[in-house]
């Protein structure tokens, strides 16, 4: 756990390390057009700097809509609790808006935002670990379980099997080494490429690939070849 908590170096919101970014081929050339979300972030930053906060908030809602689902997936896989994942995502968006003046185009917005989100999730996991020393922790909250039970599949047997499968998967992911878990989550559930993950985590890209491979191999071993 402690290894995982140091996976993402630096405080919750970190200015891009230009030296590290210079070594990463992901860095966007000056002439390349910005992605939609990055362009939105630049516009919001300009609006905030001019003091047009209402307009900035309105534009920010588009940014929220673009990244919300992906952010929730990542946070949920990290925290395994819908309420906590919800709070983590909300906090990340509020932090992004509050520190929009710190955003630099050198980073794609997605990378910057995901880094903030993951730092928040790691802090929450750390706090929960402290809490769990004194309290009994449940694997999945009853509210989430109830929500899962009202899913699209009406067959109780299928629902039960799916729940067991998810529990096994969650348990297997939880047994991964901290860095392996972070890299696997970002690549697999965050749809990030190894290059993007290397920028987010500060790890070398080849190291990210090694972690990813080891995580997949361990998961296959734990889950018996099938999830």
């Amino acid at each position: 756990m402690s290894g995982e908590l140091r996976t993402l170096p630096g405080p919750a919101i970190v200015e891009p390390d230009t030296r590290a970014l210079g070594a990463v081929p992901r860095r966007r050339p000056a002439t390349a057009p910005l992605a939609e979300d990055s362009q939105l972030a630049v516009d919001i930053r300009a609006l905030v700097e001019r003091g047009e906060l209402d307009e900035a908030r309105e534009r920010f809602s588009a940014l929220v809509a673009l990244h919300q689902r992906r952010a929730l997936r990542i946070a949920y896989q990290y925290l395994r609790d819908s309420a906590e994942a919800d709070e983590a995502v909300q906090d990340a968006f509020v932090k992004v808006f509050s520190h929009s003046a710190d955003y630099r185009e050198a980073w794609p917005f997605e990378v910057w935002f995901t880094r903030i989100l993951i730092n928040g999730c790691l802090d929450r996991r750390k706090a929960r670990a402290r809490r769990d020393r004194w309290l009994v922790a449940g694997e999945i909250s009853s509210a989430d379980e109830a929500r899962g039970a009202t899913g699209a599949d009406a067959n109780p047997e299928h629902r039960l099997l799916a729940r067991e499968r998810r529990a096994r998967l969650a348990s297997a992911i939880n047994r991964l080494d901290g860095r392996q878990r972070t890299v696997f989550m970002l690549c697999h559930y965050g749809d990030c490429t190894p290059r993007e993950v290397s920028v987010m985590t500060g790890l070398n890209e080849s190291t990210v690939r090694v972690h990813l491979f080891r995580a997949a191999r361990k998961l296959r071993g734990l889950l018996g070849g099938r999830p």
Partner: peptide, 18 residues
């Protein structure tokens, strides 16, 4: 197949909640 099933399950679980 294994990796895709992992991803599908994880996403389906999160989407069922959210």
């Amino acid at each position: 197949t294994f990796m895709e099933a992992l991803r599908r399950d994880g996403e389906a679980e999160a989407d069922a909640v959210f």
